[in-house]
């Protein structure tokens, strides 16, 4: 009895500080955002006026915001898809991919594993600025320089509204892949080797090894990756804000929810409206989290 009490006290003592911090810096801003969303606050006044649900009504006819939502939705599907496919492919090659006997990666796999992780180490802002240079439309651009040297016309990676979105997606995939290669490698390491060896002895080639052994046994890890990448797709901000022309342009072709929230708050000084957008984004993200947790409920495989 006394032990239970002691234990409770012990746990409480440890939890008090983080829970307080969480309440003050996470929960209370949430609640405040819900309140600000119902006002016309412009950021400088000490007494905002209550305007009910006007901001939410306005939001429904805000074409730019809904354009941003479709971009987030597209990223939600495409970012995990591309990243996981590429990362699985690399992880497979690095761990099981050697054509010869035994279970090993392609030659030099130790080096590649480190190289793939490099982009993950860079700050998002650094990546964004870096890719501005990579995508430069003149002959100093890393991609356009060789193209122009070959006599081809340069591609407007960031300044053509039809291409810019794909450039953003490409950079996000580039940065994310390394981490998931490592994640999937760890997953692969936990699969008993004899399974691969047994399959190999039975005559399975690389393709059937991948689809019949690797993928099914990694399914849990793939789902985790899917949820992480989904969240990344929903709250993407810095890449778009720093890298794209006119912060989400050209012509709003790359804008996302977070950039529209920022724009409304810190450029139009419509903090009330921006908070309303934030509330909508909150429900989208929560909705995605609940949905993905429901869908990923599944039996674990015990080896």
């Amino acid at each position: 009895m006394f032990n239970t009490y002691r234990r409770g006290l012990f746990i409480t003592a440890f939890l008090a500080a983080p829970v307080t911090l969480y309440l003050v810096y996470v929960i209370s801003p949430y609640i405040q955002a819900f309140y600000i969303a119902t006002t016309d606050w412009r950021g400088v006044s000490a007494t905002p006026n209550f305007i009910g649900l006007d901001n939410f009504v306005r939001l429904f006819s805000d074409g730019i915001f809904w354009k941003a939502v479709t971009h987030n939705a597209a990223l939600l599907v495409l970012l995990p898809l591309f990243t996981i496919v590429i990362a699985l492919f690399f992880a497979f090659l690095l761990n099981v991919g050697s054509g010869g006997r035994g279970v090993a990666g392609v030659p030099g796999s130790k080096v590649y594993r480190v190289v793939f992780f490099f982009p993950q180490v860079l700050a998002v802002t650094v990546v964004a600025v870096l890719f501005q240079q990579v995508f430069r439309p003149d002959d100093s651009g890393m991609l356009n320089g060789p193209l122009m040297a070959l006599g081809l016309s340069p591609i407007s990676f960031l300044s053509d509204p039809g291409i810019a979105f794909w450039s953003v997606l490409g950079v996000m995939v580039w940065q994310a892949v390394g981490f998931y290669v490592v994640l999937f490698s760890a997953g692969l390491a936990s699969i008993p080797r004899d399974m691969f060896e047994a399959a190999a002895i039975d005559g399975a080639g690389r393709v059937s090894l991948f689809f019949r052994i690797t993928l099914p046994l990694l399914w849990d890890t793939v789902q985790v990756a899917w949820v992480y990448l989904g969240i990344l797709a929903l709250d993407v901000f810095a890449i778009v804000w720093v890298m794209t022309d006119q912060q989400g342009g050209p012509d709003y072709s790359t804008t996302v929810m977070a950039t529209e929230i920022y724009r409304n708050a810190f450029e139009y000084f419509r903090f009330g409206y921006a908070s309303a957008l934030g509330v909508v984004m909150f429900f989208f993200t929560i909705g995605f989290a609940i949905l993905s947790l429901r869908l990923s409920r599944r039996e674990r495989i015990e080896y």
Partner: peptide
């Protein structure tokens, strides 16, 4: 649990998105 961890991971960034705002202090 894995699900518990996922749930926490899912919520953290949302908090970040909203934490930027703060109600004005009347003074």
């Amino acid at each position: 649990t894995r699900r518990g961890l996922l749930r926490a991971a899912a919520l953290a960034p949302v908090a970040g998105a909203l934490a930027a705002c703060a109600t004005p202090a009347q003074q």
